[in-house]
Simulated scan of single mutants.
Amino acid sequence: PKRLNGSSQNLFIYLFFRFMNNRVPSSKRYQPTEYEHAANCATHGFWIIPSILGSSVLYFLSDDQWETISAWMYGTGLSGLFIMSTMFHTVSWKKSHLRKVEQRFHMCDRMVIYFFIAASYAPWLNLRELGPWAVHMRWLVWIMACAGSAYVFFFHENVPFVFYLWESDRFKLNVLFQPNREGILELSVGGVFYCLGIVFFKSDGLIPFAHAIWHIFVVVGAGIHYYAIWRYLYATGTSQIKISR
């Protein structure tokens, strides 16, 4: 029995570790296995078309200029996130001698995260009545996106920490600055998924498919936030208070 248990344990360890490579020092980037490369591409590539369709739904539900602009801003950020991520992971998987190209895509993949965050703020900032302090967030989020991109240029491997610190500000924005509290639950739950995902982002070499799992957390968080935008800002029959321009 002990021998059988030992064999089963060894088989489990073999199956567990065959899908990932050894962990690397923090100064180097983890190299995924072929299985992990495929999962990294699929977990975001699958959502490119749904994100475009979802953005189109918001566009067709728009009743005025600001709803239309906000739908385009948010849709571009959402679709761009999945498109750039898939492009980077595809190039990384099939790079062969394209090392410099891979590095450029890696940098763009990180930069687009910040613009996705800024774009996902847009519907709430443009279509909701805001307190006196939150009005400045309409332009401040884009300054933060540019600052984040500059940060990526110099320290791109550490982006997720800044990303999630920024993401946590969603809850503060809605609690402190918006008289209308609808959507706070969804925004908070989506933010929790984003924050939990960072555990897997830092687990390459410890957990097989860790990066792909992180992708899934991002998809769930983005999906919950999309639902909140659709339901509370665009859905037919939803009463909205528009800001005087």
Rank of each mutant, 00 (worst) to 15 (best):
K2N: 11
G6K: 07
S7P: 00
S7F: 06
S8D: 08
L11R: 10
F12E: 11
Y14P: 00
F16A: 10
R18E: 13
F19I: 01
N22W: 12
R23D: 13
V24F: 05
K28N: 11
P32A: 04
P32G: 05
E34S: 11
Y35K: 08
E36P: 05
H37F: 14
N40F: 09
N40S: 05
I48F: 11
S51H: 10
I52M: 15
I52N: 00
S55G: 14
S56K: 11
L58A: 07
L61V: 01
D63N: 13
W66Y: 12
E67W: 07
T68D: 08
S70K: 05
G75H: 03
L78G: 00
G80S: 12
T86C: 10
F88Y: 15
F88V: 03
T90C: 12
K94D: 06
K95M: 11
S96Y: 11
L98G: 03
R99D: 14
R99C: 09
K100I: 02
F105V: 09
H106V: 00
C108I: 04
D109I: 04
D109V: 03
M111W: 00
I113R: 03
I113N: 06
I113G: 04
F116D: 03
Y121V: 03
A122V: 06
A122Q: 07
A122N: 05
A122I: 00
L125T: 08
L127M: 12
R128Q: 13
G131H: 06
A134T: 10
V135M: 13
V141M: 13
A147N: 03
F154K: 12
F155P: 00
H156N: 10
H156R: 11
E157D: 12
V159E: 12
P160V: 10
V162L: 15
L165G: 12
W166A: 15
E167V: 06
D169C: 14
R170F: 07
L173M: 15
L173E: 11
N174P: 00
V175L: 13
L176Y: 12
F177W: 14
F177L: 09
Q178P: 00
E182R: 12
G183S: 10
I184M: 10
L185W: 03
E186K: 04
S188T: 15
V189F: 01
G190F: 02
F193Q: 06
Y194K: 05
C195R: 01
V199D: 05
F200L: 04
K202N: 09
K202R: 08
D204H: 04
D204V: 01
F209R: 07
F209N: 08
A210K: 04
H211K: 02
H211M: 02
V218H: 02
V219E: 01
V220S: 05
V220T: 10
A222K: 02
G223R: 01
I224A: 09
Y226M: 09
Y234M: 01
T236P: 01
R245E: 13
